[in-house]
Nucleic acid binder design. Structure first.
Length: 463
RNA sequence: UCUCCAAUAGCUCAGUUGGUUAGAGCAUCUGACUGUUAAUCAGAGGGUCCCUGGUUCAAGUCCAGGUUGGAGAGCCA
């Protein structure tokens, strides 16, 4: 008999039909004569109720049907007598594919910390099923958005020899014998003998390569893993995370902000349109304000706030008695308490902050006419902080290399990048979106380790 | 990396000022129950109180160091 997925089964009304359903047992309950098994196959957060007439099955089968075990059930689709589901299956034949003695997950709630230690099994819980179905949907929304807007999906390398991309500490990639590496005459490690003939690392960003692609294909985006060897121990950082980095030729600052806002709203609308069952569950169990907050994002325009205006607002707040741990002055890098004040207290909606002092931003950002600020944008969201960092890129070879020299950066090693500015340079812009931070916001989960299947954090690469 | 907090049964947690045999709910097992919704009811089994050292007649409880986890900060996406 052909298998029917739970999601399809629950929509059917052809009572009396013989059906086959396969899935994992969430709970079993009942009395002497009749048992009820809640079966889930991952196609939806909802379970299908299997009604088991205990007398029709042998003791061993009944014993093997327990939380976590895997079943194939043939039975009759009937209208449910119970109140909490419309249809159920009256079991005629049950095959136990796999028993689950000692299954660590129980039907009562578990802490997120406990489930993290069982990351190999936690996808089988309601919460993580919902999170990963939404994660899939967000990936689909991202690809769909860019495809519909004329962007090409393009891949930057994960292994790089640029030793100072500047975005963070890097993981080294080597096949050298760590106990006995080859040395040069002056005692340094001889990387010419390494696999790539040079010192290499995992990438911290595909942006520089993305810029090359934008000057050829017009508009591209990358969507892949990124690696940071920072010793960050927070609910918002991972050592291995996924990043979306679009890069667009002929785009200016206003168009960049329009893109950032439109893109993120598209993703959130996608979730509301396509993931309501899962969002409803998360709204009930994890975060009571979730759906309202997502709808709120769609309603308002994001605030567009030049850095200098932001400083004024914060100075005004301090004058009115607001206390901050860190001082505010023009030129300071905002601490998260400052960003949170602006987003969560002052404006109460997302803020796109722009035109930062060049000293606190990266070398590649386009310098404004004032020669003090650069056309960088940070999209700041309530509760999770910076979700997007982007900028218009400096397209002038002269200005870009001058800035690099000011920052004591070595130009050799960047020739391939700087040639974009030598050969047909163009105004262009782009941004980076942390995929897991988007998932955090859309699911209402509070720790980034719980929105990626197998989190990589300092001292943790299990599974 | 810094600051603060935590670690007791498979899970979630209680454990008084240091004091006899460390408890509860859930889970598991046994039994009861004519349709349950985290089913219910009765009973049973289940402990390296994170590790090492110290104080004390006596440590789950106090002290020191460590490990692991969490929150905040920094770094950032």
């Amino acid at each position: 008999m052909e298998r029917t997925k739970v999601i399809d089964l629950l929509r059917r009304e052809d009572y009396g039909a013989e059906v086959n359903v396969k899935g994992w047992v969430r709970t079993k309950r009942g009395s002497k004569a009749v048992n009820f098994v809640a079966l889930n196959d991952g196609s939806t957060i909802k379970n299908v109720q299997i009604v088991v007439d205990v007398n029709k099955f042998d003791d061993e089968t009944m014993r093997n049907i327990a939380t976590g075990s895997c079943l194939s059930v043939e039975g009759t689709l009937v209208k449910s007598q119970g109140a909490e589901q419309s249809v159920e299956i009256q079991a005629n034949k049950i095959e136990v594919y796999g028993t689950a003695d000692g299954y660590p997950l129980q039907k009562k709630g578990h802490s997120m910390e406990f489930l993290r230690e069982h990351a190999n099994l936690r996808m089988r819980t309601n919460t993580f099923g919902a999170v990963f179905r939404i994660r899939h949907n967000m990936a689909l929304a991202i690809h769909t958005y860019f495809h519909e807007h004329g962007f090409y999906y393009w891949n930057s390398p994960l292994i790089t020899a640029s030793d100072c991309e500047g975005a963070g500490q890097m993981f080294q990639v080597t096949t050298l014998d760590l106990k006995n590496p080859p040395k040069t005459k002056d005692g340094e490690i001889d990387y010419s003998q390494d696999f790539f003939g040079a010192q290499t690392s995992l990438t911290v960003s595909g942006q520089l390569e993305g810029e090359l692609a934008a000057t050829a294909l017009g508009a591209i985006y990358t969507f892949g893993p990124t690696f940071r060897a920072e010793n960050s121990n927070t609910p918002r950082h991972l050592a291995e995370f996924w990043m979306i980095e679009p890069e667009i030729a002929f785009m200016d600052l206003k168009e960049l902000m329009d893109l950032e806002e439109d893109f993120i709203k598209y993703c959130i609308k996608w979730a509301l349109d396509n993931c309501m069952d899962d969002l409803q569950f998360l709204n009930n169990m994890i975060d009571k304000g979730l759906i309202e907050r997502l709808q709120g994002i769609l309603k308002d325009d994001f605030v567009r706030l030049p850095y200098t205006e932001g400083v004024k607002i914060l100075e005004e707040a301090i004058k009115n008695g607001r206390k901050f741990e860190f001082p505010v002055y023009w030129g300071c890098d905002f601490a998260s308490e400052h960003e949170r004040y602006l987003v969560e207290e002052h404006f109460k909606k997302p803020v796109i902050m722009t035109d930062y002092p060049k000293e606190i931003k990266s070398f590649y950002m386009k310098i404004n006419a004032d020669n003090k600020t650069v056309q960088g944008t940070d999209v700041l969201f309530p509760s999770i902080g910076e979700i997007i960092g982007g900028s218009v890129r400096e397209e002038s070879y002269e200005k870009l290399t001058n800035r690099m020299k000011e920052l004591d950066m070595r130009l050799d090693g960047y020739e391939w990048y700087l040639e974009t500015r030598k050969f047909g340079t163009c105004p262009h812009a782009g941004f980076g979106l942390g995929f897991e931070r988007l998932i955090l916001f859309v699911t209402g989960m509070s720790n980034i380790r719980d929105v990626i299947p197998f989190p990589r954090t300092p001292k943790n690469a299990q599974f």
